[in-house]
């Protein structure tokens, strides 16, 4: 149990003719909610894609639950994939299915549960994600941005994952919905015992909900620790990043 859920070990990634990651290393122990920040184009989303097995890093190892995911055969990788959930930036809900069908999709693929139990689970996850049951029969195109994110969260949580990856969970939401969503995430992480890695630009999310921040800058991790500690780091980019938040808040 004491082993970290996620370990990134000297990740190198080359993209568009230059090195995007030049030795990124960090680890996340069980139950921790970690924020990943960095300027646009520093490869936060690419790092997430590498963690969930969608894009292979050029060098380095990624261990999820102690398994080096890029050394696993596809079958084993898919078994590991059952143990984590992903919330994509735009939600990535299947547009031809209703919300309830979207949430039920992983259950249909991975379990043999009878429809009655499946519906019950789906209803619970939709309620847990803070949606009303009226939303269940709607299609993604009929939902607002915040509701889409919640529906996507319900789908990410339906297989009872231990680990959750979130790519910009509050982007495109108004500040009030964003704070509500942060609060929901925090409550769910605490009560479901989730470990989470959140790529974000949202300063308020950092102050409000994460245990730890990892800062990517020019292909390396330049700071890693609790938010107040990272905010006090004497580094040009980090100073201006947190100062931008101060200006924003007036």
């Amino acid at each position: 149990m004491s082993e970290p859920v996620l370990v990134a070990d000297r990740i190198h990634t080359r993209m568009g003719g230059h090195w995007l990651h030049r030795g990124v290393s960090f680890s996340i122990p069980r139950g921790e909610v970690v924020g990943l920040i960095g300027a646009s184009g520093t490869g936060k989303s690419v790092l997430l894609r590498e963690c969930i097995g969608l894009q292979r890093p050029h060098a380095g190892h990624l261990r999820l639950f102690g398994e080096d995911i890029w050394a696993l055969p596809l079958k084993r990788l898919n078994q590991v994939r059952r143990r984590f959930g992903v919330l994509f930036q735009e939600g990535a809900l299947f547009s031809s299915l209703t919300v309830a069908e979207n949430v039920a999709a992983p259950l249909k693929e991975h379990t043999t549960l009878p429809a009655r139990l499946r519906d019950e689970l789906v209803a619970m996850k939709i309620r847990l994600a803070g949606l009303s049951m009226d939303a269940a029969d709607k299609r993604p195109s009929e939902l607002s941005g915040g509701m889409k994110k919640r529906a996507a969260l319900a789908r990410a949580l339906v297989m009872e994952p231990e680990l959750l990856f979130l790519d910009e969970p509050t982007s495109g939401l108004d500040p009030i919905s964003a704070r509500e969503f942060d609060h929901l995430l925090r409550v769910l992480c605490d009560s479901l015992g989730l470990t989470a890695l959140i790529a974000t630009h949202d300063l308020d999310s950092l102050w409000g909900m994460v245990d730890r921040v990892i800062v990517l800058y020019r292909g390396r991790v330049i700071a890693d620790g609790p938010v107040d500690q990272v905010a006090a780091t004497d580094h040009e980019w980090i100073r201006s990043y947190f100062a931008a938040g101060a200006i924003e808040r007036g």
């Binding site: 309830a100 519906d119 019950e120 789906v122 209803a123 619970m124 309620r127 847990l128 049951m133 269940a136 409550v187 769910l188 009560s191």
Partner: peptide, 11 residues
């Protein structure tokens, strides 16, 4: 949390 959210309403 679950008991609170599942206020006995059927789907």
């Amino acid at each position: 949390l679950v008991a609170d959210r599942l206020d006995a309403r059927a789907r």
